[in-house]
Write a protein that binds this DNA or RNA. Sequence first.
DNA 1: CTCAAACATGACTGTGGAGTCAGTAATCCT
DNA 2: AGGATTACTGACTCCACAGTCATGTTTGAG
Lengths: 312, 312
Amino acid sequence: MFEHLFSKGGLSLDRLRGFMQMAEAGSIARAAPGDTNRQSQISRQIRELEQFFGAELTRRKGKTLSLSAAGERLALLIREQLQDLEDFRKEQAGLPKSFVIGAGASVLEWLLVPALPAISRHLGGATLLTEAHRSRSLGDAVQDGRVDLAIIRQNAVPAGTNTALVMKMRFHLCIPRTLLKRDTTERDAASPALWQMLPFAAGRDGGQTDTAIREAMRSAGVDFHPRFECGSMLQVRQLVGLGACAGILPTLGIRGLDERRVLITPFAPLRDFGRALVLYWNPRQMRRRGVETADLKRLASLIAAQTGPTAA
Amino acid sequence: MFEHLFSKGGLSLDRLRGFMQMAEAGSIARAAPGDTNRQSQISRQIRELEQFFGAELTRRKGKTLSLSAAGERLALLIREQLQDLEDFRKEQAGLPKSFVIGAGASVLEWLLVPALPAISRHLGGATLLTEAHRSRSLGDAVQDGRVDLAIIRQNAVPAGTNTALVMKMRFHLCIPRTLLKRDTTERDAASPALWQMLPFAAGRDGGQTDTAIREAMRSAGVDFHPRFECGSMLQVRQLVGLGACAGILPTLGIRGLDERRVLITPFAPLRDFGRALVLYWNPRQMRRRGVETADLKRLASLIAAQTGPTAA
DNA sequence: CTCAAACATGACTGTGGAGTCAGTAATCCT
DNA sequence: AGGATTACTGACTCCACAGTCATGTTTGAG
């Protein structure tokens, strides 16, 4: 059995790994930045694999390589196989498995990080690696197993059974009271005219949330020029907390803000933008790695539960 | 990622294969009969893997080796991985996948072989390898993926969703009319006293069916001494067909017998021994190899359908 | 057109590990 | 006790392949 895999040379774990690294990095150069030796080696390993299988695994697409359909399948396969071997190794060495958990930057910091200890406990003391990604690429990463779990907007993943609701998110207008007249009410704060006058902090990451906020402001008739344009919502939250400016924050981001010092009201223009965050996973992957669907459902509610007690 | 698998030596496809071969053969010597070089090599490869993983994969059990729990898991893993690589290779080479189909010797010849062309067509032109096994070991072989599909007595496999009924089997007493008086009726033929007088052919394989027949004869008060003791039911069937002697044949075995020349009646003592044959598969394995449950259900009815037209 | 980036290729070296052989140790059978 | 079977070990040889370096080819950007 399997004589054909061994009768002729050209197949080896090293080569498979080389190909996988290229597949994940998207190009040879990015698979081994700054190491031209390794690059030339990977180039050769890919060629040897292609000879072995008698099939094109890559295609030149412009200056870099891209994977053929067969290449995609093989890369997926290799990742699974190495993953399984690594899990076996860790188990035998008495080490915990490790899982890669991804989320957007702010969800990562506000929701995921506080929940990490509980998650690890729930996964049998697993080692956890966090990764910040955009929703789109996060979905892909879960699809092909580069990321094990993701907390992601529900509408960014295909509908299916491999998700579990974590929480619903809405957006809130947060204005430090020092920026307002003494007796401003919530009703007053809902006025675009007021918003026009206030110094704002906003994100500058070009993400879907950021874009939506700017769009909402424009459609509310506000010529929106934030005083601070921050790389992440975390910094926005910080500036609001300092009383330096107003900001639009998601539900997660308002925890820990002192309601006596900051006026917090629902941000009407984005009322319908409020979205569900779900835990998203790859069913094949999870089954292979010994995590049941029930575990994941429980994990989701466990993460949701973490939103309560933990300080921001 | 996966640095630990490559940073230290000791892991290679060759070694994994060596270990797997030993695992499947049950001992090093049987993994490479007559090739002491290969034997010594496998012995070393196993040791190197054990060093790599820092764990016992085997235990000496008497004169031979047996697998530890970890070893069992690893062997399973390796088989899956090599299988996947082999499937990928074949796909790329434009070759059909190959499936291993097992059954008892007589089921194999009478039911499976005639159905092979249809099975292959239904599996997308797959190459098929047949293997004759005892029920017990057949179940194990399916469990750990050495055999892809099996046709096997229902009561020999754990109840579950991974089976599909093929047919019910009963036993028939078959007596060439040349051995009977002119006007013998079916009722007459049901008499143990008659059986005692007839020359019989029976199996000698010690299988469950063979044993049951002999037991049934004894409990019917017949001192059963078959004139011919054959290695397989196929030979029994042949002798009956020649008119040389009587025999007890399963439903499958009476096809093609000429009712004008052979008296065929249900064999009463084994009325309750009649058993269902099911198609049995390993769900993980089939899913991985791209065969859906629905395909398998259809395959089962397709095999059942084959019992009709084909000549024995 | 030039330059740099990304990949490919040819020509080497060194080494890990497959392959071979001979001998030893443990266990079973009779 | 003696022989047969099975596994382990040491001491090699030889080669495939990882690793290195220099150079060639294609492609996109300025």
